[in-house]
Design a binder for these strands. Structure first.
Length: 412
DNA sequence: CGAGATTCATGTGAAGTATACCTTTAGGCTTAA
DNA sequence: AAGCCTAAAGGTATACTTCACATGAATCTCGTA
């Protein structure tokens, strides 16, 4: 989002920008605020850490640990704790010369690990072998996987993050297969750690899968404002230079995040983005205004990135929704699937893009609903049929931003 | 007037198709003995 | 004869289409009070 400047002094300007970046940095170590950073200590999660640790500990004696199911809202430190314990355990295992591997898979990543096949493929890739992204029968991947693992006596702990996402998409059969994998193994043993953001996730599982997956369960409660403040303080101290963080900034961040069900990731993002904004403005103090600015930025950026990476047909569909939404904005009336499809078809005709069926568009709309970009609800309008009632609950400026992004990316 | 039938517009599931990609296999060509 | 390359054959996953049936409340119909 760098503003375009005149071409005349381009070089000078760039120089200036770079120079001020070097001179003006307010960060001591920005990595610390990044979400994938694993700190040396994880405050307020000691309990969970020791629980997880005691559950996976048997692996150090080459015994199969119980399957574990972890759940809690976003930003409650689930992934962080798992990574932490994983690192410690792997270190210990290599000290003791024990064969232990713990592949970590995030099942949410679209086009990477959102089908049974792709999860397996990813898993095999993590183990250092390559498989084609299409063309092979799924059970052949299972065989290959088993072959790799069963080559020696070892413990394999598969970590499936955001597992609820995968199950919603493709059903729970693959979990069943995974849990039964042990009976095919002779030397190695597998156990599974599932992580879910959805607290009710276990209820929708097949009872067989459910009982074997959740031999152990750990709930991660949300952080409260005090704990968030503590976490932020510790990280801010490491991340920023002295006297950068203004009065009350930490408090405000943690208050915001506490309101959003204690999401620590959010609080950290807030602080980091605020820092980046300050830096860009060449100031050297983070004050409360910047937190507000950062809050807006985060919300829009997340959505914009998600949209930018969608396939073309998804983008056209969304564009149709937005165009219709703009027409109806004043009246605040919802949009229906049929309207969208008509608009979409016209758009395709005009731009000579191949046109999908309504059946497919219906699914695409449902996917956008899952993504949270739009708000779709199936309603029956009695005599006038049944349809999805679609609304967009995003701030106007963001809708406009999405609109231009789509026009841009579709070359319209 | 109210219970039950009808209706509409589309949701939704299942099965089929097109595409892109994979492995296997057989034939043909090259090569080295 | 052995080795290597290539192309065809046979197979799969995925995205999409086609077909067919399911939904569910507003509206209609018609018997009854």
């Amino acid at each position: 989002m760098i503003k375009k400047r005149g071409k005349k002094n381009n070089k000078n300007n760039i120089d200036q920008i770079f120079d001020s970046f070097i001179k003006h940095t307010i960060f001591k170590n920005k990595l610390i605020l990044q979400i994938n950073y694993t700190p040396e200590t994880i405050p307020h999660r000691e309990n969970q850490i020791s629980q997880v640790a005691s559950i996976v500990a048997p692996s150090l004696r080459l015994e199969k640990p119980s399957n574990l199911f972890i759940y809690g809202l976003t930003g409650t430190g689930k992934t962080l704790v798992i990574h932490y314990v994983k690192d410690q355990l792997l270190k210990k295992a290599s000290d003791q010369n024990i064969c232990l591997i713990m592949p970590y898979i995030n099942c949410k990543l679209k086009k990477v690990a959102d089908t049974e096949y792709r999860i397996l493929a990813e898993l095999i890739k993590k183990l250092g072998q390559k498989v084609p992204m299409t063309g092979l029968p799924t059970d052949q991947l299972y065989h290959k996987f088993i072959e790799i693992i069963d080559s020696k006596k070892q413990i394999v702990i598969i970590i499936l993050d955001e597992i609820d996402n995968a199950v919603k998409r493709i059903g729970d059969e693959f979990l069943y297969n995974f849990t039964r994998l042990n009976s095919e193994l002779t030397k190695a043993q597998i156990s599974i750690i599932g992580i879910s953001n959805d607290l009710k996730f276990l209820d929708v599982l097949d009872p067989r899968v459910r009982s074997s997956l959740s031999e152990e369960e750990i709930l991660f409660p949300p952080y409260n404002a005090l704990q968030l403040r503590d976490i932020l303080k510790r990280r801010a101290k490491e991340a920023f230079k002295l006297k950068i963080v203004g009065e009350g900034v930490i408090e405000k961040c943690s208050a915001y995040a506490a309101r959003e069900h204690g999401d620590a990731r959010r609080a950290l993002d807030l602080l980091r983005i605020a820092g980046e904004l300050v830096e860009r403005d060449e100031k050297n103090k983070i004050n409360l205004d910047y937190i507000d600015k950062a809050k807006k930025r985060i919300e829009s950026d997340k959505i914009l990135i998600a949209i930018e990476t969608q396939p073309k047909q998804f983008q056209i569909t969304l564009l149709s929704i937005i165009e219709l939404f703009k027409k109806l904005r004043e009246k605040n009336e919802p949009i229906f699937t049929g309207d969208i499809y008509n608009f979409y078809r016209d758009l395709c005709r005009k731009t000579r893009i191949e046109c999908l069926t309504q059946r497919r568009i219906s699914d695409i709309i449902a996917e956008f609903d899952m993504l949270g970009v739009i708000n779709a609800k199936v309603v029956s309008k009695g005599r006038y049929g049944r349809t999805r009632e679609i609304r967009i609950d995003l701030p106007t400026h963001l809708v406009n931003q999405i609109n231009t992004l789509l026009l841009d990316s579709l070359n319209l």
